[in-house]
Amino acid sequence: MFLSLAIVAQIIVAVLLIIALMVGNAVVMVYMERKVAGFIQRRPGPYEVGPYGTLQAICDSMKLLAKQLYRPGNVDLILYYLAPILAFFPVLLLYLPIPFGPYLTALPVGDGVILILAFAGLGVLSNLLAGWSSNNKYSLLGAARAVSQTVAYEIPMILALLAVVFLSGSTDLKVVTDQQGPWPWQWNIVLQPLAFFIYLVSLVGETNRAPFDLPEAESELAAGFHTEYSGMGFALFFLSEYANMLLVSFVAAVFFLGGYKGPIADGFWWIFIKAYALMFFMVWIRWTFPRVRFDQLLNINWKWLLPLGLFNLWLTAAVIKVAF
């Protein structure tokens, strides 16, 4: 009986909680990003709204909700309104296989990794649709760049995760987590440091995040593929970008940093701490490095990350074959 009332109820509750998580994450990330950006630039950041500016994100979201939905004249209506929705909803599906705690997986499938990789491709589609339907050269160029970048950086990501799958022997995320221990020296990062590094770089490239954020380069392409979106459309793209970042951080935490396992007590708090540490790291990187030129961006991927990923995979396979 693989379809029972319990599973249906579980999935419904899980989807509601995940939506709450995504919205809460956006609020927290907006605040964290602006505050960290401020402190790195030796200035206070948001300060006036609420104590130490904590309610700033709420004001921002209210502003975005209330803004006029302005669209240019001759856009393709269906595609134009479909694109932000397509950006937002697949990310929900991606959160389902992640083991947040020992008993807190929304949908414990045996192919968790492949599900995540499969639906990550849908985000690419939304970029393309947004860029195309805006009827705007800048948007189209931004969309083309974004798509080629995302598709390119998926490959080293897959290779890095595959190396860990080799070690664990299963694509099930829960099994991968269970094979690591609570203490940091028992995590997969010790066994696969190169894979972690590759995954970290492709994480930043996959989510179109600085220094690889040329597709949405605010200073160059006039905001790239979401130029023509204002108000709620932009908010949806924004939300899906932060949700995507959180998702890949969760996956990194599960694969390389021990998931929900931690020194004192296993639980969902550990995975949140690790994921948000990675998010903080991404924000830190954003405000440190200048933007990479597009051909350099793709060169890093095809000439360095891909061979390194393949080499790492080969090495892992060889060691496993010889040693076990």
Partner: peptide, 21 residues
């Protein structure tokens, strides 16, 4: 050098603010 850059911004992150509030 990337690591050096991040150390610099990390130090700025933890230093007091320069601007006048």
């Amino acid at each position: 050098s990337l690591g050096v850059g991040m150390a610099i911004t990390g130090r700025y992150l933890l230093s007091p603010v320069e601007t006048i509030h």
